[in-house]
Simulated assay, not measured.
Amino acid sequence: MYVADSGNDRVQRYAPNSNNGTTVAGSAGNEGSATNELHQPISVVVDDNFNMFISDMGNKRVVKWAANTTNGTILIDGSSNGAANGQLKNPYGILLINDSSNQIYLSDQSKDYVGIWTFGAGIANTTWFTANGTDLNQPTQITMDRLA
């Protein structure tokens, strides 16, 4: 089990039948924006290769943290406060579909939308749901039923 420990600026992993977690990303109480730091991680998903995708809300970014590493790679950077299309303002929930499409679905609570980001050689954003003032209001967690 992986836990986004927002107040401690880290992600914890709990092995089966264990009451003690191990820090696998970030550092307890050491918020920051360097590639080995997190600031208020709010959501984490793990792929089949144990890579973590972390919604690092305090830094307005999404970070991919490979298994057994001490640094993450910034996939989506909203450090300019999310003014432009495809930038983040308040990233929250992440949904990863393990279908080799290199896509993550991400909600942005302040921009009132859920988007699809394709990553790899470059990062492209395609808005999936856009808010027009009535569609979404501060979306947080997202999930998906079985795809057709």
Results as ranks from 00 to 15, higher is better:
K89Y: 03
S100F: 06
D112K: 08
A15F: 07
Q103V: 15
I74A: 10
S33F: 07
Q138L: 13
N59T: 03
N51T: 13
T140V: 12
G82C: 07
L136V: 10
I76S: 02
Q141E: 14
N102H: 12
K60L: 10
D5Q: 05
T118Q: 04
G82M: 07
Y2H: 13
T143L: 09
N8L: 04
D99H: 02
G93S: 05
Y105R: 08
G82T: 10
F129Q: 11
M57I: 01
W128S: 14
T73R: 00
T134C: 01
R61E: 04
H39Y: 12
L96H: 11
I104N: 11
N98F: 01
I76L: 08
Y14M: 10
P41W: 06
Q87P: 03
N8F: 00
Q103P: 01
G32W: 00
I74N: 11
H39D: 15
I123K: 00
S33Q: 06
S27N: 13
T127E: 13
F50K: 14
W128Y: 15
L75D: 07
E31A: 15
I142F: 00
V11E: 10
G122P: 00
T127P: 15
V3E: 06
G82V: 04
S6D: 09
A4T: 10
G21W: 00
G26S: 10
H39V: 03
T22M: 08
N68W: 09
A34M: 11
T73S: 12
T127S: 14
A83L: 13
N102A: 05
D135L: 12
D99E: 05
D77Q: 01
S55E: 03
M57N: 14
S33E: 10
T73C: 03
P139Q: 03
P91L: 04
S6N: 08
A28H: 09
T35G: 09
G115N: 02
G93N: 02
L96T: 13
A83M: 07
E37M: 14
T35C: 06
R61C: 04
G122V: 15
G29S: 00
M52F: 05
F119K: 03
G115Q: 05
A131R: 07
I76V: 10
V11A: 05
N17C: 11
S18F: 09
Y92V: 02
N19C: 12
T70D: 15
A83P: 02
T23G: 00
I116G: 02
H39P: 00
D47V: 01
A66K: 11
R61L: 01
M52I: 07
V3Q: 01
D135I: 15
N81H: 08
G7R: 06
V114E: 08
P16S: 09
E37L: 07
